[in-house]
Design a protein around this nucleic acid. Structure first.
Lengths: 153, 153
DNA sequence: TGCCAATGTTTGTGAGACCAACGATAGCGA
DNA sequence: TCGCTATCGTTGGTCTCACAAACATTGGCA
């Protein structure tokens, strides 16, 4: 009754894109309560792990377009989660850093996203989860080394 | 230099969504030459495997919104790939069926998408590919049984 | 007969990933 | 030192995918 063409369900690209849509939904549902979204999380995470950065650095490290970084930082700054100041050493750049409130927001989002991972992988055993992560990582390293922190040579 | 926050790369949801973006790009690149897109493929595949259908059936089987089916079928009909006629037995419904040209278009898209699967899984051995497909399918069956042709309750 | 449900359709929204262009500023080679 | 080129932030788009709201037409049914 609810059959889906085998042409679709047999394709890895179908499995991956459909699962990605579901993962995004889980994340969006959880993040709704935090008031920030996926782009905001990438910015906050980048700042936390690498410290004060220019917007272009945030874009490269978080795999974002620099124009999207502008919008995300506008919103984060408005809520007091980041601090944006002109770089005195290079007036083309802004220096962005996490505030205390931003660090707390990141922690909130971390909790939410950790739960998302659990929900997402729920049906798999720990060993299967590790296998899946390993295979997915290999594919991503192969296709988009820059999205996994690999030097693209 | 191109480091990515470990907070991101360690999350399955990151791996899956980033890989999905890449898969969509591969598919879009390949499909550009065919003139049809992902929604069109879902419609054509559904018609081929289940035969003449109403739009609501196409929507349910191809996991599409019925309003998106309207647009896709408009475009497919304009190119002569499908045929849309009012159902004499239920005038609320349209009966949509594949034309000869539509069958050929589906074959073209199949070839493109088969190559996409190969590109996508390239770094994995046949055994690893099977493992990945098995794990992804289990996750999707668990979270969105309707997207894999499973009865949802 | 009168009401509710199903179907197709129109219109719109929001997220995510991009792209092009522009002004200001730096850096560098002649 | 001058002039060219590159970089950075910013603005203002585009496109795809997923989905929600509302409406008219038609069927089914109490």
């Amino acid at each position: 009754m609810n059959a889906v063409p085998e042409r679709l369900t047999s394709k890895p690209s179908w499995l991956i894109t459909q699962l990605a849509t579901h993962a995004r939904r889980l994340a969006a549902d959880g993040q709704a309560a935090t008031g920030s979204g996926a782009y905001h999380y990438r910015v906050l995470a980048t700042l936390q792990e690498f410290g004060e950065s220019s917007q272009i650095e945030i874009a490269r490290r978080g795999n974002l377009d620099r124009s999207d970084v502008v919008a995300a930082i506008n919103e984060l700054a408005e809520e007091g989660f980041v601090d944006r100041t002109a770089d005195p050493a290079d007036r083309r750049r802004n220096l962005v850093r996490l505030t205390r409130a931003g660090t707390q927001q990141l922690r909130r989002m971390d909790r939410v996203l950790d739960k998302v991972q659990d929900d997402l992988l729920e049906p798999l055993s720990p060993g299967e989860r590790a296998t899946l992560i390993r295979l997915l990582t290999r594919l991503l390293v192969h296709h988009r080394p820059d999205a996994v922190g690999q030097l693209s040579r």
